[in-house]
Computed example of a mutant assay.
Amino acid sequence: MLWRVRTTLVDRPGILAEIALACGRAEVNILALQVFPTSPRVTDELVVSAPTGWTDVMVAQLFEAAGGSDVSATRVSDASVADATTRYLRGVHEVLEEERDIASVLHELLETEPPDVADYAGHDVMVLNRRSGSELRISRAVPFTEVERARAQALVSLVGDAGADVPLIVPSNRDAVPLLRVAGLTDIEAVSAMHERCSIDTLYERYQVPLKMPMTTRMARRLVVPDHGTALVVQVGTDVVGHGVLELIDETWTFQLIVEDAWQRRGLGTRLMRLAASHAKDAGAARLTFVTAGSNDRLLRAVGRAGFVARVERHDGNVHITVPLREVRSIAATGSG
């Protein structure tokens, strides 16, 4: 039977030896230990294995008799023995890669359940600040240490744009000059914000499915750093107002783009197409296929304005517009990207 014990001790040499000796005499085995400095005293957290039949009160009394104060004892599972750093790194992975809710991950990391601890005196509340300005509250019967608060805040700050954080919804500044360039990881938040500003119709023309908002960090990261290609963006000031993904799919180079509603009909889609064509040619492509929903006539017009000779085909309700790249200049020749 495993217990997590939180106790405050006088910060002096030998105090842990006294705790270990008391546990050894009671046949309570110490399996893990964390030290949370709280000068001039210290808070220690131990995971211990106690004999069958022991209760939280019995475990707490053992540590109190050995010199501990403010002792709490909580039943835990085998997962509590795992290294704390490893658990938090795994938590980051679960939020970013498995799209788990960050609040759920923190509840597991901080072990907010069960609340039935010895000498229960009410919940402690941890208030964490998201990058969006909103707050995330986590409560637990056992008081949080400053180290735990710092760990949790660092996790929220690192992955706070995933899931629940709301991207910017203010329209972009239309006076600045658009810049076309290759996207990178620093564009994750700006690309998410652009999608939040787009209408349902614009999103459907790009993805051919109703897109769930707000966008997760995992999806935004794939949009700016695709597995088999290059992402391009149109930047205006600090905002991204257009985006496209150039990818090699089943030996066919494809390009799918989106321009937010307020910036449509200004030639940005045509410029993105030309830049994508140059990148595709540099990658060895002989032709490039633009893919869109069947009702998107704007893409057809943009292809014409770009000066491409196109072959138009329909596949499963989508339009595939394939253009040869013989006359397209490379990136070095155009000076773009």
Rank of each mutant, 00 (worst) to 15 (best):
V147T: 14
T202S: 15
R174K: 12
V147F: 11
V170P: 02
R137Q: 14
A162K: 07
M194P: 01
T202F: 09
V177R: 12
I200T: 09
F144M: 01
P143V: 02
P143S: 09
C198T: 02
A154V: 06
H195T: 04
H195C: 08
S172C: 09
G160P: 01
D187M: 09
R197C: 06
T202R: 09
E135K: 15
V182N: 05
V159A: 10
G160T: 14
N129E: 15
R149H: 04
A154Q: 04
R137V: 13
L185E: 12
E189N: 14
E146Q: 14
T202G: 08
A152C: 03
A190M: 06
P171K: 10
D165N: 09
C198K: 00
V170G: 01
D175S: 15
G133P: 11
I138Q: 04
I138N: 02
R174P: 05
D161I: 13
L185G: 08
S139F: 06
S199A: 13
A190F: 04
A193H: 03
R181C: 01
S157E: 13
F144E: 07
L155A: 01
R174I: 09
V142F: 00
S134L: 08
S199K: 10
S132F: 06
R130C: 12
H195N: 12
L158R: 13
I169S: 11
E196W: 05
T186W: 13
R151Y: 06
R130G: 14
V166K: 04
D187Y: 07
I200Y: 06
S199V: 10
S157V: 10
R130K: 13
G160Y: 04
E196F: 03
D187N: 12
L158H: 13
L168T: 04
F144V: 00
V156Q: 04
I169G: 02
M194I: 04
D165M: 09
R137F: 02
E189Q: 15
D161Y: 00
V156T: 07
A141C: 06
T202L: 06
L168F: 05
V182R: 13
L179T: 13
L179N: 05
S192I: 06
V191I: 14
L136W: 06
G184Y: 07
N129G: 15
V159D: 05
R197Y: 02
T202W: 08
D187A: 12
L168D: 11
V170Q: 00
L203E: 01
D165R: 05
S192N: 10
R140F: 01
A154S: 10
N173H: 06
S192E: 02
A176K: 04
T202A: 11
D201V: 12
E146D: 15
P178C: 05
P143Y: 10
